[in-house]
Design a protein around this nucleic acid. Structure first.
Lengths: 330, 330
DNA sequence: AGTTAGCACTGGTGAATAATGTGTGCTAAG
DNA sequence: CTTAGCACACATTATTCACCAGTGCTAACT
């Protein structure tokens, strides 16, 4: 691919990103100081290589997924990190009163607003977290609330019904034993340890050790969530402002997917780089591009993702994500 | 309005609800054993009274908002509480392992699924709740987590940064005092009591009482949320399956509104009856009907709401809501 | 007085047609 | 290698036409 062809591909991608409509040969004449026929010849060549496509036999060209890819990897230039957008982000990030996750969420919300794409934060709430404390708080004769706190300050709670044959006293006592023995245990090992450490231990002193363990199994069960992704959307529906979402079925399709928690959680990544997944190669929606990266701040890890049309302002998004990621990771 | 005219209005409303298209005079001939001209005469009369409308000069009639209203109040018959739908609800409601709010949410989800309308539960999390316990759990040198539990078992938590000039010890001690003095206090009075009860009390024994109170003010501040509505959607986008949502703008408009938390929270009601708000008279969206009612189960109160097109299966929705409300309130 | 048949009329719907414009591929000449 | 010129392809839009479902009105009928 010659130099002019590269420039041409770049021009076509950028024009299409900006103007949404297929770009024809004539529109590029002045820019390249040559006739439309020349442009057409190059276009044909780029199409043969698979970088361009036509929507119908005599339309202008649009970039193929391969074309976008080439653009992202070889042609685009990251923007300078300046301007009011970045200023907004900095203001938030410098606010020391904000807990990290809140700051990240707010930043992603802003990025969503200035780009009109949908942003997602998948905070792996307590990846690698260990138990800091568990409390049992009796609510009435039939119910207690169990509250679990991790070493990073995440909290989960659950209401549990007290089985008829157990007394609150026994529960509280068992809870104390658990606190003594299990503090420092990674969350995902808690259930296991409950069975193989706690049960034998309380078997010595308590009659109803089976029932008690089963009760705590119950109480801990939903805390698994702490290990799961916590999903935050910044401007969930901003992507609908993109002109590609102009027909009912397309809108409903994307909304459906954004509401599908399982699908969204799939976006999670632990890739330290910012990766761009265009169309078919993301497993979210073949008509979109997903740009994502992980972050890791003092063991608090998660995923930042932006979902937009394939015709996305790649340079802008990558620049912003890059800035945010670097800033929070210092 | 004569007897036949009432029957006619009923037939028109029900036909339109079912078939979505304006109903013409001829389609009702057999049912009323008369000619289309007769029907037309009655239709004209009903239109004069404001119960019917035309979409254009020579279309069939559709019910006006006034017409729907008359239908709901005078014409429709509640369905029998039978069938598999109700069975599904009962199964959930009989599951004793489910906490009330979860059971309600699941039921509303089912109602949304069988009707294809959007259902909302606004659980006033802890209306009238009082403080049961507050704990301070140190996370590291700079952070603590405050955990607040209410008498109904609701939990709120918040990470707070420790001001430089206060020690964790002092915080924990103050916390104990708060627990002694403030347990039983309604949540919305906590901040007030912090100022006028706690501050004077700790002023006796602690030097930095000002700073400590300010710290706890901070720690409590977001717990106000507990007094706010907790929004749950059952099948948020089910309403999009209704044929009226067949153009991009309409879809985007309703999605926008459903994403607008403030607007949704406005739906809240404390009306014990099931009320139907058709079109302009609901302040959510003039093209929809909102059917809502409050529930109150042992002091746990909230709002159940269904949002659908004005052309809604009023009898079905009211019947289902009625069943659910009565069942949970025993 | 209420009901009905008949008729002219209105507006929506869908198919067919035509006109226009934007773009292409190809060829041949510069 | 570049360019002008030309025939062709397809999307878009507007126009027309026929059709249909429905109405309002009038006059006749029970």
């Amino acid at each position: 691919m010659g130099e002019r062809q590269k420039k041409l591909l770049k021009a076509i991608v950028e024009s299409y990103i900006k103007n949404v409509k297929p770009v024809g040969s004539k529109s590029l004449c002045k820019k390249f100081n040559c006739s439309s026929a020349t442009i057409r010849n190059d276009m044909m060549y780029l199409e043969e290589l698979g970088y361009l496509e036509k929507t119908h036999t005599s339309s202008g060209r649009i970039p193929s997924e391969k074309g976008y890819h080439y653009y992202v990897e070889n042609l685009m230039k990251l923007k300078d990190i300046t301007g009011e957008d970045v200023l907004k982000l900095q203001t938030i990030l410098n606010n020391k009163d904000l807990v990290l996750s809140d700051a990240i969420n707010k930043c992603m919300e802003i990025i969503s607003d200035i780009t009109n794409y949908t942003s997602i934060v998948l905070g792996k709430n307590s990846y690698n977290n260990v138990l800091k404390q568990i409390s049992i708080i009796p609510i009435d004769e039939k119910k207690v609330v169990s509250v679990l706190v991790t070493n990073t300050g995440h909290v989960a709670n659950r209401q549990v019904i007290i089985p008829e044959d157990i007394s609150v006293k026994e529960i509280v006592k068992t809870c104390e034993i658990i606190n003594k023995s299990l503090v420092g245990t990674p969350l995902n090992e808690i259930l296991e340890k409950l069975e193989f450490v706690i049960k034998p231990e309380i078997a010595k002193t308590m009659q109803k050790y089976e029932e008690l363990c089963s009760f705590f199994y119950d109480a801990f069960y939903e805390f698994k969530d702490l290990n799961k992704d916590d999903v935050f959307f910044g401007g969930k529906t901003n992507i609908l402002k993109q002109p590609e979402y102009n027909e009912p079925e397309k809108i409903k399709e994307i909304i459906e997917k954004l509401e599908n928690v399982e699908l969204v959680k799939n976006i999670e990544t632990d890739d330290k780089e910012i990766k761009v997944y265009i169309g078919e190669e993301n497993n979210f929606d073949p008509d979109t591009t997903v740009i994502k990266t992980s972050y890791n701040v003092d063991g608090e890890v998660g995923t930042l993702a932006i979902i937009g049309p394939k015709r996305m302002e790649y340079d802008k998004v990558v620049t912003l994500l890059n800035f945010l990621k670097n800033y929070i990771e210092r």
